[in-house]
Amino acid sequence: MAVDNELKIELGKQGVFVTTIEELYNWGRRSSVWPMQFGLACCAIEMIATTMARYDLARFGAEVFRPSPRQADLMIISGTVTKKMAPQVVRLYNQMAEPRYVIAMGACAISGGPFKQGYNVLKGIDRYIPVDVHIPGCPPRPEALMQAFMTLQKKIDEQSLTGADRPRHLDAEAQGEFPVPEPGEHDLEPASNPGVWPAPVVIR
């Protein structure tokens, strides 16, 4: 049984620290997120700036950008996802180890942004993979990326390890594979993954 919060603070004042496995587990996960070294367009410059000395993402325990999806658990979609690049993005997401998270950075990654009308731009990466945090902006400032990162940390912190809403990696039934789209005649096929993005019904 979990100790309630006030009692915990009271005990802490007396020098007795109590915790739960869940808290420890989530603390470990949120404090060492390994982002993937992966930039798509202009937003990537801001992402790079975030990791450098001036903004210093290292303060949040996520400074080590890994060049391989095998060693990363956070994918920052930083920029325009073209339809040519989308299969690669989804494949890389698939190749990351569980648990894995996605931050969609900037207008492009969320919706296609300024290139939404473009014939070759994907109108939001959340059509294919589940996005944890969206950051608007074109480009979002490094502070915004940090805000997104802290939001993600909070999200990880609040996950419960058991129950129906437990994260995917602890759910043996949950799917771990997200279908990689193929370039079709006019568009990517499939145009979206209904499991993560129910296509909106257009009412005319």
Binding site: Q88, R91, N94, Q95, E98, E177
Partner: peptide
Amino acid sequence: SPSKPNAVKNSIYECGLE
């Protein structure tokens, strides 16, 4: 470890290309 292997995940890493 939450192991969720699948064909795409186990394939050779080539920067996202097949």
